[in-house]
Amino acid sequence: MNRKILRLMENDARISTADIATVVGISESEVEEAIRAMEAEGIIRGYKTIIDRERIDENSVSATIELKVVPKAERGFEEVAERIALYPEVESVSLMSGGCDLSVVVTGKTFRDVSTFVAKELATIDSVTATATQFIMKRYKDHGVLLTDEETDEREAISL
């Protein structure tokens, strides 16, 4: 049941509890209870809006920064990852396989904001030995949602 609810909400966080109840076949209050429980357990971590920043008059620059990190004896990469995650400029932090150790997505208003942040904050962390910054030039899809112009329905309005 939880999985069904999550699948619906993952698609559309604003789907009404009434609609979820109809699809899953339980009462609205049961849906609300299930959602509350999943929030309490940390399964549901939040609800955010997917914004196509190119369509609003707002400066925004993002970059993916690959970090090489010397792991600590006890906690490996955890300590530095958690520390980096605390910066509000940081959108995501992930431990990677392959060429780098941590991959960090940083967002700022301008290129300079982001490069300053990398140079002054990330690169100066003791255990960080190297950074490689790649600026994102254009997003085509974000969180599974296409940001390109929506596909038009090629079907006619009526067919039997």
Binding site: D153, R155, E156, A157, I158, S159, L160
Partner: peptide, 20 residues
């Protein structure tokens, strides 16, 4: 009626007989 529906703009249709 179908021809009118099929040429009208901005129709919210529940009219088709094929998958999306």
């Amino acid at each position: 009626f179908f021809d009118i529906a099929n040429t009208m703009k901005d129709v919210i249709s529940l009219g088709v007989g094929e998958p999306d």
